[in-house]
Nucleic acid binder design. Structure first.
Lengths: 128, 128
DNA sequence: TTAAAGCATACTAAATTAGTAGGATATAAA
DNA sequence: TTTATATCCTACTAATTTAGTATGCTTTAA
């Protein structure tokens, strides 16, 4: 089981913005500090902007700010946006986690725990 | 975050064997019952054999049996073998989850929870 | 002796991931 | 009002991983 670098990059960038909240910071600075390709990061943060995690300001002296306070944004939100669903599914949509499928219990239980864990961690918790 | 079908196939196959434990079952039967490519499954179960989850009996009337009782095999063992490590790491091995890396807390915490959950589920729990 | 099983290895096709490239658009400051 | 600096948008590509095939060898119970 893996997480993509996308989730990791996204989280790191948001933690970075949380650290300077409520100041603006531009892609160039974030990418240098976090050692992530600027162009790639630009796209990732774009997705987080669509989903209202960050706000952007265009033009000179522009950049990004968290759309909410660090205490009001969870790791789960960010990771779910970056990585897609956190609930593993049985293959080919044939199994829709029916009661008759014994092993589906494992994925359901696990999905619950993962959500519980990640939605319980706020950016505010990570910057102390 | 995703699990591969490999982990799912492996788990399903082991649950299947748990259901008929301690009887032998051959690849052909398992693959038909679980609707998984026989040749692919053969390889997957091969890995589980190397790691002592199942025992095999070659030759006519051969097949596979769980190497231990269903109560003594956990979902975590199987999934870890099939899927590799369950602990997500920071990128490029540059970050080794240091205390200075704020976001690494998330992956460490999550890894713990995943392990706790999956190692807490035994095959025996799944076949009732 | 032989048919039925697992064992081993190499190959391939499809999907996903991780980026690049190039420009269009917006805007604050000079 | 011009210009530099930033985000925004879309298409392309390279690398890796996943999922699955193919082929043949080895073992062994009947």
């Amino acid at each position: 089981m893996k997480f993509s670098t996308k989730a990791e990059y996204g989280l790191r960038a948001m933690v970075n913005l949380a650290s300077c909240f409520p100041e603006l910071k531009n892609i160039k600075s974030i990418s240098q500090e976090e050692k992530i390709s600027a162009k790639y990061l630009e796209r990732l943060i774009g997705e987080l902007r669509e989903r209202k995690i960050v706000k952007s300001l265009k033009g000179k002296n522009g950049g990004y700010v968290l759309a909410r306070k660090p205490e009001q944004i969870t790791a789960g939100e960010i990771i779910e946006i970056m990585d897609g669903s956190m609930v593993p599914k049985c293959y080919g949509n044939q199994c829709t986690h029916m009661k008759t499928c014994a092993s589906s219990f494992v994925w359901i239980k696990l999905g619950e725990q993962i959500r519980k864990t990640l939605y319980g961690i706020k950016l505010g918790d990570l910057i102390k």
